[in-house]
Structures are given as C-alpha cells and as structure tokens.
C-alpha cells in the first residue's frame, strides 16, 4: 500500500473513532472500546521493541505497572496533581526501561534470554510492590480519593462527577488520544533513521553492526520508547479506576495482553496492535455472548475459543491481520502499489 492510501485509511479511522459518541451511547460498548484501545496502547508499547526491534519481552507489565504506580503514588503520597504526575510517571518508567535495557543489552541477551529477564524483572517488581509497604501500601493497593466536585473534574483528571458528556466519554477520549500519540510515534519511527536501524538490528544484528549501527544504542532507544508508551497506558488505568495494586500492575496478565495484540494483528506494523486488540476482544465478547450463554454460566469458555483462534492465526497468518489486510488490498488494487 502506498503512503497515501495508508494515510487516508488512518484519517478515516480517526474520524470514526472521534465520532463514536454520535452513534454509540451504551456504556457497555464504550467500556468495550476503552478496553480495546487500552490493550492496543499496551500492544504498541510491546510492538516497538518486539515487532520492530525483534526483542520479545515477556514482562511489559513492568512498564505499565511502574507508570501506574508513579501516577498513583505521586498523587496519594505527595498530593501532586495528576497532570503534573503523569510526566514523572512517563519519565520514571523510561528510567526503569533504560535500567532493564542496559543490563540486558549490555550483555547481549537475546531471544528467550531477553524474554526471561524481562519476566524476571516484572516478577521482582511484583514482589517489591507487595513488600515495600511503606512506599506502595503493599498488597492493599493504592486507592486515590474520588473527586466529587464537578468544577474540578478536569483538574483532577476524573470524570465521575462532571458533565454528562465527559462522564460518559471522558476516558474514552483519554485512551483514544493516548493511542493516537502511540501510533503517531510508531508511524514517525517507521519513517526515520532510528526505525530503519532498529529493523536492521531485528533482521541481522551482526550485519547491522558492520554497517555502522550500534545495536546497543538502538535497542536502548526502543526499550525507552516502549516504556514511555506502556506508562501512558498505566496513567490512563489509574485515572480511570483510581486504584492500583501489585497484581494488576505487575501480574503477567498485562504482559501477555501486550504481546498478543501485536502478534495477532501484525508484528512491526503501526496498525497491528489495534487490529489485534479489536480481534481479540471482539472474539472475547462474541464468545461470551454466544457460547457463554449457550453453555450456561461457565467461566473460561471464551478462553478456549480465544486460544484456538490464537493457534490458527499463528499457524496460517504469519504476518498477522495487518499482513492479511495488505494482501487483500493489493489484490483489490490489482497489485498497483507493490
């Protein structure tokens, strides 16, 4: 697909997403969209490092969780406003990303070793956040005070007591904007020297080094960017639910969601994480609605369907849904844009 076709597609998609309140009013479907976009942001964070850089992390929860905890604790402990806290949340998470990246890439950890060390870090953060009670409130979690003054809704970054429009759609737009930022960053990266060098490192690290690329520096850049994007998802989460606890923050759940979306949607593509997230959660919802109802109230039935679909996608769509979309477009376009 040429850049112009892609741009048009993105502009259309953006328009549809921005206009969602015009045709969706059911709180349930807005929640569904929010969750989907949230996972797409997590996925984009993973995609930068895993999809473009070929460094498969199994512990991206460490970035999500750290962003969320910093956002929550700065407000809870120090009384810093949410809009100021979020810069620290992003910056602090980038520092954590740089630290993990430095230790892993300095010693050339790749493949499963890198996956294991990221998993180890997220587990370590899980344990720390449970045991450092004076800092993190331990397993009880951090509960942020609810703002009940409608006039302060925007300042408090809480939309529970605000005008009806913000109450219904405030967080939808929050996560939409975060996703736009994440996708724009990825889009920019894809068309920059940094992106080209990152892909070169993924393809063949030795050849990349021979061509003047410092694989270490490029991977460091990627892990910092991944950390920043994942932290933004954490900020959204805390502001929306006003609560964070170790299991939500650092449990493997978020790490797994972060990598499923881009793998199913298409590794190393801007749209992959969003496509994948829609696919996963769409399937999940349908499974709950149909199978779940037909089978009675049996939890886990959607997971079986979900697992089967994952296997099918991995087996038959190595380039994910984005790859499928591209070949379909090419066929329709008569192979005009190669």
């Amino acid at each position: 697909m040429s850049d112009r076709v892609r741009m048009t597609g993105w502009a259309l998609l953006l328009l549809i997403f921005a206009a969602v309140p015009a045709f969706i009013s059911s709180a349930r479907w807005i929640d569904f969209l929010e969750l989907t976009l949230f996972v797409a942001v997590l996925g984009q964070g993973w995609n930068i490092l895993g999809g473009y850089g070929g460094q498969y992390s199994f512990g991206n929860a460490v970035f999500f969780g750290t962003g969320a905890y910093i956002q929550a604790l700065l407000q809870y402990k120090l009384g810093i406003g949410p809009w100021a806290a979020m810069w620290f949340a992003v910056a602090g998470t980038v520092v954590v990303g740089a630290f993990i990246g430095y230790l892993s890439f300095r010693y050339g950890l790749r493949g499963s070793y890198f996956a294991l060390i990221t998993l180890a870090f997220s587990e370590a953060f899980l344990v720390l956040s449970r045991s450092l009670k004076s800092l993190t409130e331990g397993g009880r979690g951090v509960q942020l005070p609810l703002n009940q003054d409608p006039a302060q809704a925007l300042a408090a970054f809480q939309f529970n007591f605000s005008d009806p429009f913000l109450r219904s759609y405030g967080f939808y737009y929050t996560i939409l904007i975060i996703l736009i930022v994440a996708c724009a960053l990825t889009w920019w990266m894809e068309r920059s020297r940094f992106g080209a060098q990152l892909v070169a490192v993924r393809e063949n690290e030795e050849a990349a080094e021979a061509l003047g690329i410092s694989a270490f520096r490029v991977k460091m850049g990627a892990i910092c960017l991944a950390a920043a994007i994942s932290a933004m998802a954490g900020i959204y989460y805390v502001q929306k639910f006003l609560y964070i606890e170790p299991g939500i923050a650092y449990g493997t759940g978020k790490s797994v969601e972060a990598l499923f979306a881009p793998i199913i949607g298409g590794l190393g593509t801007v749209a992959g994480p969003l496509l994948g997230s829609f696919f996963i959660h769409g399937i999940g919802e349908i499974a709950k609605e149909t199978l779940g109802r037909a089978m009675g109230d049996r939890p886990g039935i959607d997971l079986i369907l979900f697992g089967s679909i994952l296997i099918l996608v991995l087996a038959f769509l190595p380039r994910g849904l984005a790859g499928l979309l591209e070949s379909v477009c090419k066929r329709i376009g008569g192979g005009r844009d190669a």
């Binding site: 020297r193 080209a196 060098q197 892909v199 070169a200 393809e203 063949n204 030795e206 050849a207 990349a208 021979a210 061509l211 003047g212 690329i213």
Partner: peptide
C-alpha cells in the same frame, strides 16, 4: 551473505546509507 531478508533491496542499502 547477511541480507535483511524481510526488507527490500532499497531498504537494505538505505540502512548502509543511514550511517
């Protein structure tokens, strides 16, 4: 030979040019 197999020839050479 160590080509970046998933990239086009143009993209391969551009990686060198980016130095």
């Amino acid at each position: 030979v160590q080509p970046f197999v998933n990239l086009s020839v143009r993209e391969n050479i551009a990686v060198g040019a980016h130095t």
